[in-house]
């Protein structure tokens, strides 16, 4: 659980996610109601991925980033969707079949008059240790924060 007493430097880890082709299809294939679903793109189609020089379909960077956002929502609750900000860089591709894990380290915590500003270093790590997405995130929370869950 994160709160005004959480020490700076605390590391939070999301669960490990297997990026199966089914999950990639659901994310990047377009709505299931789409005519001729799924859409053809390098995120789900081996042929399109090969045309772009990749050995397998590449998950959208937003899908990996989404796992970081999920971790932040678990930590910060409703405050995230009202004051959350996220600066990210996309470093390495995540291929269909890879596993990834979101991580966040509390970089700074500033509390004043019942309001706490949290800043995190965040990243999403592939199972081989390579960093797929890296960045910083920030959120302002009015304490006590009822939306916070145990991480």
């Amino acid at each position: 659980m994160i709160g005004p007493a959480t020490p700076e430097g605390t590391l939070f880890e999301g669960r490990v996610h297997h990026m199966s082709i089914e999950r990639l299809l659901a994310f990047s294939g377009g709505p299931f109601t789409l005519n001729h679903w799924p859409a053809r793109n390098l995120h789900i189609d081996p042929e399109k991925a090969a045309e772009a020089g990749f050995p397998a379909p590449v998950a959208s960077g937003l899908q990996a980033q989404g796992h970081i956002i999920r971790l932040l929502i678990d930590l910060l609750g409703d405050a995230w969707s009202r004051t959350g900000s996220f600066h990210s860089r996309f470093r390495r591709p995540v291929f269909a079949g890879d596993s990834i894990q979101a991580k966040a380290r509390l970089a700074a915590r500033r509390a004043e008059a019942g309001v706490t500003q949290y800043t995190f270093d965040v990243w999403c790590e592939r199972h081989d240790g390579e960093i797929a997405v890296v960045g910083t995130a920030a959120c302002t929370v009015h304490e006590p924060n009822p939306g916070v869950q145990a991480a």
């Binding site: 969707s81 009202r82 900000s85 996220f86 990210s88 860089r89 996309f90």
Partner: peptide, 12 residues
């Protein structure tokens, strides 16, 4: 290719 992104959430 998307290389970098800044997003800010204001409301659900």
């Amino acid at each position: 290719i998307l290389s970098e992104q800044l997003c800010r959430f204001f409301h659900p």
